[in-house]
Every structure is written in C-alpha cells, then in structure tokens.
Write a protein that binds this DNA or RNA. Structure first.
Lengths: 248, 248
DNA sequence: CCAGGGCGTTTCATGGGTAAAACGCGCGCT
DNA sequence: AGCGCGCGTTTTACCCATGAAACGCCCTGG
C-alpha cells in the first residue's frame, strides 16, 4: 500500500511489515515463508531478517532457519507506552490538585536548557497560566525547570548552561544549590510579577526524574497545604504509573 | 555500530534507531533534533520520518513539525508479548495436567495444513510422545490439528486441503463435521497404533482459536476424567492469559 | 545412488535511495 | 523593514542497496 511516494524508504517499510507478520498463531517463520507471505524476493527477506537479527528484533531459533520476535521489539513500544501513560495517568491527579486548591496545574519535562510543557490546566481565574501545551521556557526561570535541574549534577548543569552569560550561570548554580536540598521548589514568576509556582519532581522506578508538575497562582506566598498537595500529587502519579517513588 | 556488513539495510536500521530515541523524557522531537541526536543528515531524517508517519509509527503533533510515537508501534510488540506469554503461561497448567494424569502434554498451533508443536512434556513413561518442539505433523492426523481445523469454516478447510488426494479431503471433512460439534477431540494415533490423544482449543479474547493443547498416552480409551482435565486446563490457560474464553 | 526440488546464501549489474547542496519560508533581532 | 539564521522541503548526481540469477546444501523419492 502506498508506492510511487518519492520519499518512502522501502527497506524500512519491508522491515516493519515483516515484523507484523509474527502473530501468536504464527510465532516462528522461515525466510521462505516470509517471502511468500509478503510477496517479496527471498533476497530482500534475507537482508531484512539479517538486519533485524543483528538489531535483536528477531531471534534465530531451533535449527537457525526459523525466526521469532526478539525482546528488542519492546524497546520501541516502551517509549510509546511510558510517555503516553504518563500523560494519561497524570491528567486526573493534576485535575484533582487544581480543583482542590484552584491553582493552575502543569506537567513538563526538561529538554536541554528549556522546560517543555506537556499538560496545562488553567485555574478558574484563567489568569495564572501564560503557557500552552508545547511551550518552551528557560528552565532556570520556572519552578518545574528548577526542580528538574536540581536533580542533575553540577557538571551537567554547567554543560547545559555553557554559552550563557556568566551572571546567569552563577545565579542558576546558586538556585541549584538551594533547590537540591528540598523536595519541592517554589519560584516567583520571572515572566509576570506576582505569579508564584511550586513544583515537584516525578520519579520513575529507577529513581530517574522523568517529569515535574507544578501549581501556579497569582500570589506571593505558597501555603504549606498547597506545597504538600503538589508533593502528594507527584507521588500519586508515580504510584499510578507503577513506579516506586520515594514517599513524600 | 556494525557497518561494513554487506547484508545490512541502512534504511531499516535508521528507522528502528530513530524510534528508540523517543523516551518518556523526550516524547516529542523535531526533525532537526532527531538529525542531531542520531548524527545523520536531515535528508535521511526527513525520508525516514515521512515513511514512519505513513506507517503510523510516528504522529505529527502540534504545528506538524514535532513528532511523537504512534499507536502502530504496539503492533510489533503485540505479536511478541502475545506469543511469548502464551508459552510461558501455558507451561505450568500443562505440567499440572501431565502430573495429575501422567499423560504426555503438548501445545501446538496450526500452520497451514500442519500442526506445529511449541511445547512438549513427555510423561513419566517417556513413550507416548514421539514429537519434538518444532515438529510438524499433518493437522488431520493429530488431535490438536483436528480440533484447530474444526474451528474453521468448510471453505477454509477445502482451500487448505486442495491438492491433497480426494479421499483424504473427504475423510478430513467427515472428521471436521464430527469435531465441530464437540468441545474436544479424541484421536487415535495415526503414526503409532495404540497411541491416543485428546485435544482442546485455546481461545483468545476475541474468541479466535490461537492454539491447542493435548494429552497423549498409550491406551485405547480416554477416561472422561482426562478429557475433563484437558478442557479445564485449556480454559485455565485462556484465563491466565487474561482472555475471556467460554467456560468449559 | 542419483535426480529433483526447496531453501539459505552469494554474486553482480542496475536502478533507486542517499548525501549534499540549494531553496523558501518563518522567526528573532537590530 | 532588513537581515540572518534555523528548519522543512526539494532537487540532483552518485553510489550502494536491490532484484534476479546462480550456487551449494540438505532433504525426499524413485
């Protein structure tokens, strides 16, 4: 399906199609079977299978002439499931957080020296959220960014910020030293005065920080109750993902 | 990793590698980011991404310049998980069946007009199992084959058997008519006289028959208790897979 | 024992995918 | 506005992945 497309890569299409011919009903196939099933030459099957075996997507079994799917196929689906699941799973706890405190809720990840917003939940006032999904802001100037940076090492921070004005780097490192000590980060809006945010990190099962959430409102102090709720929500999201995050 | 291999397919390797760069920490990427991450030209990324989008493995999001993994990535892992899981899950119930009755246990799938053995559990006598894992026997001459054929339609059977001697086809169709009516199939050894088997199908969640199990022994009558155990085991395997098979 | 066929592998000329360069658009900065 | 840069897209000459054919091996049957 779909030829005469000048930009398609036949080799890739064949490999992906070939992988999809493996089903529970047909878990092992020989090259000849694959060639017949796909209606392509045995040469193409040979090279494709050879490549897939080297990548671990196929495993030779039995006499070496039969092949079955290898564990590597899970590598591609992992990224999808994990990222999808995080956004879906995080949605409800974040909504609960917003409704309980009427603060805007966000979820973001670190991309280089920027924070990337993936979920945006404006509070009822509609004012305390100036970003959109997909927005990028300098990490050092947001609560989520700071809490994500605070979980990196100092050399990583320096590498990330190199090329920046020296004053900005030193200021970021000062904040980094302070943020590293606390489980959450409170940040007073760098873009709009009076806008205040509190952020907490989300850990995966290996302890890696994969994302952060934050609550934002037009205020100048963050009640301890809100900070506690943010930490609890971050923990709830980790738990809902099946990850063993440290308890708040 | 791995060049100067005369049989590798660069386009395929690139596509698979590209898919693996999508992680929970980096769920969306632009072509330029991908080119930099992979260290390949933007042209290659453009063609690869274009192909992956057409196949549904990537989805353009936001402004159309960012891409994230698409649901299609699950298609390749489904076959792996499903087939792997079936074999692992089926192992223990089959062992229990063998130990309870001391009959040889097998699990097989239909491949064309042949039955493919995927699990082989010899009984203590070691005699009543003449096949190996990976063995192929004509479906019409085994209990598992007959029970799998009996879940197909008559036109499917005719197509499967075309080219066979007419007498064999008619005989198979007669057996098919009888087998369709019962939940299990008892078959007296076509390869060794006195060897008797009883087989039951395993259904997946959609009611499709994905495999069959059988118990075999040197005898000429199948006790009702063994037939009941085989049906129960097949049902137990379906249930352990999370499938809603019809109760025995 | 030797044909015959099926299958995995290898070879080789060629056509198509590839890398490089150029294009054009949008954005940020002065 | 004007400029410059970054990025997605298009083009093009080239070279490498490709399809066809041949090879060698292991079966099976006569």
């Amino acid at each position: 399906m779909s030829d005469k497309d000048p930009y398609s890569v036949p080799g890739l299409v064949r490999g992906l199609t070939l992988l999809q011919t493996f089903t529970p009903q047909r878990p092992e196939q020989t090259m000849a079977q694959l060639a017949q099933t796909l209606g392509i030459t045995r040469s193409a099957v040979f090279r494709t299978v050879h490549t897939l075996v080297q990548e671990g997507f196929l495993l030779p079994v039995r006499d070496g002439n039969h092949f079955r799917l290898g564990p590597a196929v899970l590598r591609v689906s992992y990224g999808y499931l994990a990222s999808r699941e995080l956004l879906e799973v995080a949605q409800k706890p974040l909504e609960a957080l917003r409704d309980a405190q009427d603060w805007s809720g966000h979820l973001g990840v670190l991309d280089g020296r920027h924070i990337l917003y993936l979920i945006r939940l404006p509070a009822s006032d509609g004012l305390s959220s100036l970003v959109h999904v997909g927005s990028r802001l300098p990490a050092t100037m947001t609560a989520m960014g700071r809490v994500l940076l605070s979980r990196k090492t100092e050399p990583q921070i320096r590498r990330l910020l190199e090329g920046q004005p020296k004053a900005a780097t030193e200021k970021a490192l000062a904040a980094w030293r302070k943020d590293s000590a606390s489980p959450s980060v409170i940040h007073n809006g760098s873009f709009e005065t009076g806008l205040c945010s509190v952020a907490a990190p989300i850990h995966d099962m290996s302890g890696e920080v994969v994302a952060a959430i934050s609550a934002t409102k037009q205020t100048d102090t963050v009640p301890a109750s809100v900070e506690r709720e943010v930490l609890k929500t971050a923990y709830a999201i980790s738990r809902a993902m099946g990850w063993n995050a440290p308890a708040p």
